[in-house]
Design a protein around this nucleic acid. Structure first.
Lengths: 108, 108
DNA sequence: CATTCGCGTAAGTCATGACTTACGGTAAGC
DNA sequence: GCTTACCGTAAGTCATGACTTACGCGAATG
């Protein structure tokens, strides 16, 4: 169930923007905040949520805290999605198959 | 940006429960609702959100509407996650590399 | 040692959305 | 044709959470 936190974290557009910023390069909080239309405390709170979901990690460097993407949370998401993807494809294939069955029965 | 709707849709626990129900088998709305602690209209509203995100599709069968998993929305999520996964791994590898550099410099 | 920078936390406000009950509308059964 | 299932929509309520300002703490700088 660890993927639940990750999904909930990524549901917020501001948090996805923060992730996009970290995707380019690891950055301290202030630098991320100045590129976004929200205050620095807001970014700090979002980073806390992202960190609890295992999507980012922090590393103190003097007074700065450098945040970067962390693989763990993303791995949990990938596993969830991969399993779901198989089932979705199976459902789709079965639906297409049943439809083909009905078509041939209707006009043989 | 189509993955944004999918993530927002899956952020809700009730919607994930609905997805889990559909994962087992395609079902009409009423059957899904009776297995969940919410009312049938609530399930209907959730299914609407899931359908708009491309995660499920409906098919009328008499007065019933059979819902099933749809691959499209999940595919968009997979693409987003795969790209992010690469960057997260790269960030992790670079961090480990830099740390190793500092270790050797500190205790040669 | 005082100041400044960078950050996290607390408290309070406000909007979003998840849920309910009530209603209307369409396909099956007697 | 009339009732009975099954469903989607409307309107209203209430809680969650995203944001702000204000504050306190540790580290670097003079």
């Amino acid at each position: 169930m660890t993927y639940a936190n990750a999904i909930a974290a990524l549901a917020d557009p501001t948090r996805r923007a923060i992730v996009e910023a970290l995707r380019a390069a690891p950055q301290p909080v202030g630098r991320i905040a100045c590129t976004l239309p929200v205050s620095r405390p807001a970014v700090s709170q979002h980073l806390r949520v992202l960190a609890e979901a295992g999507l980012v990690t922090a590393e103190a460097e003097g007074t700065r805290r450098i945040y970067r993407l962390a693989p763990q949370g993303w791995a949990a998401l990938r596993e969830y999605l991969d399993a779901m993807w198989d089932d979705a494809l199976a459902a789709y294939a079965r639906a297409a198959h049943e439809q083909a069955q009905n078509e041939t029965r209707r006009s043989p």
